[in-house]
C-alpha cells in the first residue's frame, strides 16, 4: 500500500492501481463514461481528468486521465482545478454537440453548466458516444461480434459488413453495459433480436423461464467444457439447487463426521 493526497486528503491505495480508485476512496465524485469495473481501463471519454503533481515538480502539474494513471507514493492529486474543470466542460460540450438529444449527456453537461452546446449540433443526432464499452465487453466475453468501424467523423460501432453478426450469441451484454442505452434489442420468451440477428431462446428445465439464447448455451458449453444443461438452468434455479445440496451436505456432515474423516485421508474426497 502507498499513500497519496487527493484534494488535500490523505488516502491509501494499492501501488499501480488506477488513480480513479483512490479518488473515489477519498469520497470525491468525478464523472466517467467509458469506465467499467469489469473491464480494463480505456481512457476513451476523458472525463475523469485530474491534475497530478509532486512537491519536487516545483509547482508544475500535468493533467492525466485518472482511470489509467497508476497510483504512486506521494502523488498529489487535484480533481477540480480550474483547468481540469474547464477541460471536462469542453469534453462535455463536444459530447453534447455529438449527442444533443441524449438525456445522460444533457444531464452531465447541465451539471457542468452547459445548457446548449457551443459547437454546431450534430445534424444527425445519435445516442452513441463511442465509449467502446459494448465492443470491449463483447471482446472480454470472447465473442468479438461487433467492433468500431470507419474512422474520424464517420466512426461507428457496427457488426461486420453492417449485417447480422455471425459471431453474436445474443447475450445482450453490449446493450446492458451501454451508458446511453442506444443498442436496440427485443426479447421475449420465444425470440430475441439484436444487431439484426434473431435468436431462439432456451427455457429453464425447472421453472420454464426463457433466460438465455440457444447460441449462448452452445457458446458457454463449448468454451468451458461444462455440460450444456448447466447453462440451460436459470440462475435462480441453480441457486436453489445449490442451497439444497449444501443443506443435504451439512446435514450429512453432522451425522457422518467419523466416516467422513476416514474417506478424506484415502481419496481426498469426503
Amino acid at each position: 500500500m502507498i499513500t497519496l493526497t487527493v484534494n488535500g486528503k490523505t488516502v491509501r491505495a494499492r501501488e499501480g492501481s488506477p488513480l480513479l480508485e483512490a479518488v473515489r476512496a477519498a469520497g470525491v465524485e468525478i464523472p466517467t463514461l467509458c469506465q467499467h469495473e469489469a473491464l480494463e481501463p480505456w481512457g476513451g471519454c476523458r472525463l475523469c481528468l485530474v491534475d497530478v503533481t509532486r512537491p519536487e515538480w516545483n509547482g508544475w502539474a500535468k493533467m492525466v486521465v485518472s482511470c489509467m494513471y497508476p497510483a504512486e507514493e506521494g502523488l498529489i492529486v487535484e480533481t477540480h482545478t480550474e483547468r481540469v474543470v474547464e477541460t471536462r466542460r469542453v469534453v462535455l460540450d463536444l459530447l453534447l454537440a455529438r449527442c444533443p438529444e441524449t438525456p445522460l449527456i444533457q444531464r452531465l453537461a447541465r451539471e457542468h453548466g452547459i445548457e446548449k452546446t457551443s459547437y454546431l449540433p450534430n445534424p444527425e443526432p445519435t445516442d452513441c458516444i463511442l465509449c467502446g464499452l459494448c465492443t470491449r465487453v463483447c471482446d472480454h466475453i470472447g465473442v468479438f461480434a461487433i467492433s468500431s468501424v470507419n474512422r474520424g467523423a464517420g466512426r461507428e460501432i457496427a457488426p461486420p459488413f453492417h449485417e447480422a453478426p455471425p459471431d453474436c450469441i445474443g447475450c445482450l451484454a453490449c446493450a446492458e453495459v451501454c451508458p446511453t442505452s442506444c443498442i436496440p434489442y427485443e426479447t421475449s420468451d420465444a425470440r430475441r433480436t439484436i444487431w439484426g440477428k434473431a435468436f431462439e431462446m432456451v427455457r429453464c428445465p425447472k421453472c420454464g423461464k426463457a433466460h438465455i439464447t440457444k447460441a449462448q448455451a452452445d457458446f458457454y458449453a463449448g468454451r468451458n467444457g461444462v455440460p450444456r444443461s448447466y447453462f440451460e438452468t436459470c440462475d435462480a434455479c441453480k441457486r436453489q439447487e445449490m442451497a439444497r445440496t449444501f443443506s443435504k451436505l451439512s446435514a450429512g456432515a453432522v451425522g457422518g463426521m467419523e466416516t467422513g474423516k476416514q474417506g478424506n485421508r484415502e481419496t481426498g474426497r469426503p
Binding site: 468501424v149 461486420p160 459488413f161
Partner: peptide, 11 residues
C-alpha cells in the same frame, strides 16, 4: 475475429 478484420479494413 471477423469484426476485427472489418474494423481494420474500414479504418
Amino acid at each position: 475475429p471477423l469484426a476485427k478484420v472489418f474494423s481494420v479494413s474500414t479504418f
